[in-house]
């Protein structure tokens, strides 16, 4: 039960941070990506603040053997740069530039973003649900992983 409460609290703090920082505003995100237009540097401060805070957490985690609520901590990150990492990130970038939303802010905006936010979310979830089948198809036709 405590694990669920902490998970919900982390999700809530993440959502509040996304809202406060302006990441649920697609104009701000697209302003950051618009290097040929009226460039908005805010996203660099958001990512910088988040990365520096999380870097401290990784240093703390490195000195621990288990999570505070029990269970293992994540192992070292995988290293391989492959077709799915590059191709997937390019697709993600294409959609991110087009609409200005990524998965976290899309979810955080669901409660106040109206119908447009719900349409984006449904399409994103459909894409996520279809990905395991798409990956199997890619493996058969483009077997160039790793």
């Amino acid at each position: 039960m405590l694990r669920m409460i902490l998970a919900a609290a982390a999700g809530g703090l993440f959502g509040a941070g996304l809202l406060v920082s302006g990441m649920t505003d697609t104009a701000r995100v697209q302003g950051w990506l618009d290097i040929a237009g009226d460039w908005d540097p805010t996203l660099a401060f958001v990512l910088g603040g988040a990365v520096l805070t999380m870097a401290v957490a990784w240093r703390i985690a490195a000195r621990q053997h288990r999570a505070l609520l029990g269970g293992p901590l994540p192992g070292p990150p995988p290293q391989q740069i492959d077709r799915d990492l590059i191709g997937g990130s390019l697709m993600f970038g294409a959609g991110w530039g087009l609409a200005g939303l990524c998965p976290g802010p899309a979810t955080a905006a669901l409660g106040f973003g109206g119908a447009a936010s719900a349409v984006f979310m449904l399409a994103m979830l459909a894409g996520m649900a279809a990905t395991p089948a798409l990956r199997r198809w890619l493996d058969r036709t483009l077997p160039a992983r790793g």
Partner: peptide, 13 residues
């Protein structure tokens, strides 16, 4: 279109 690209792209990557 954007939702599908973000959904598929992030899961592939």
């Amino acid at each position: 279109a954007a939702g599908l690209l973000v959904g598929i792209g992030t899961r592939l990557a």
